[in-house]
Write a protein that binds this DNA or RNA. Sequence first.
DNA 1: CACTTTACACCTAGGTGGTAAGAT
DNA 2: ATCTTACCACCTAGGTGTAAAGTG
Lengths: 235, 235
Amino acid sequence: MIITKAGRRMFPAMRVKMTGLDPHQQYYIAMDIIPVDNKRYRYVYHSSKWMVAGNADSPVPPRVYIHPDSPASGETWMRQVVSFDKLKLTNNELDDQGHIILHSMHKYQPRVHIIRKECGEELSPVKVIPTGDGVRAFSFTETVFTTVTAYQNQQITRLKIDRNPFAKGFRDSGRNRMGLEALVESYAFWRPSLRTLTFEDIPGMTKQDGWNRILWWLLSFIKTDWKILTSYQQR
Amino acid sequence: MIITKAGRRMFPAMRVKMTGLDPHQQYYIAMDIIPVDNKRYRYVYHSSKWMVAGNADSPVPPRVYIHPDSPASGETWMRQVVSFDKLKLTNNELDDQGHIILHSMHKYQPRVHIIRKECGEELSPVKVIPTGDGVRAFSFTETVFTTVTAYQNQQITRLKIDRNPFAKGFRDSGRNRMGLEALVESYAFWRPSLRTLTFEDIPGMTKQDGWNRILWWLLSFIKTDWKILTSYQQR
DNA sequence: CACTTTACACCTAGGTGGTAAGAT
DNA sequence: ATCTTACCACCTAGGTGTAAAGTG
């Protein structure tokens, strides 16, 4: 995932569907991003792999992205897909825009928090999320990512350009972009287990959310495990 | 003020500075827009005046614009200028976007509401604002406006084009737009009392807010009281 | 005739990766 | 060598008044 000084969105954005909330209870929804391990990585081109390159850098100031619809009732949260598309990542440890601060070349995993609102309680974008009875956290292994300041891998770049509307200017104008269906098929050829990851298998998941999860999966798959490509135009 | 089916912003937007709130108390800030009288108007070109053209149309569904930062602490509200620039007006009585519904060719006045948040209370965009001990309403006579679907008066059009960044494409490219200082001077020549309306006279008012209030004042002045111009290119 | 609606060119505002220069 | 930064062209998204067509 690209991180910049000014702050950069994640793509694709995390989108989650809530169930089982108390319709009349007020909740905050928040996201933080935690290190997957204590390592720093570098990308090795000849093997197309991320490899450990030492221990993690010193911790950064903790930040929490409070979903802008917070607080809202369980009913409101459950009626919609909750999208984190406005969340931004930065590598600026002195950031004062409330963005989430991360180290480049490290592995991270987003966490979604559901926090029951007690009267008078206050949630802060710069404090660690409290733990307790009314707080639950969820994370999804397919959303693990590696931070970079420039893409290390042409396949990641291609997926981003093909799927992110804001990168349309970089698409090959010659032919239509590859549909995600076809993309999944081609990846599945090399990695049969991916065949099972279709949204039809996940009850209650909409088509759009399904594609987002598949895309997440592809991205993490390519970053950590891609074996086909041996030459890279990009450094 | 222009109203459309899809919803149109007010320009200039209302911007208010809060004082005297309890820093630790939570408040909603909201706006509604109430009829100034029970009349319908038409614009008479030869006299450059809005004139009564019958009684008001039947009432529209009541709508409230809840400021998107709501709820927030008194401290938060007082730290910033509270801007209502995302509020939209519509003439569509079946609107489902939560915009404020108004009749065209009527006179209206925005009201700002400060609502102390009690635990468990809920504020709705489609309900009338409650009255009670923790609720206060403010309105400013210089923000009275007349609704239209197309401008009736070339001077209003010119002020909007000159001051609204989104209308830059319609500005005379030949000369620089008239500074608001010069604008006020020229209007004051015909209406000496306007001279007194400068932001320096209003304690605690920032320059930017001052210009906004003067602009509001100019707009209502022109609409209701302009006597200089006798010919209109625009119908 | 007196308004209202629609399609449009032209803006603001801001999200993309590319590219070349900078930093260590 | 390796990673980061600043600037850029090219997009999306949406706020303007205009002009012409629509409405009753």
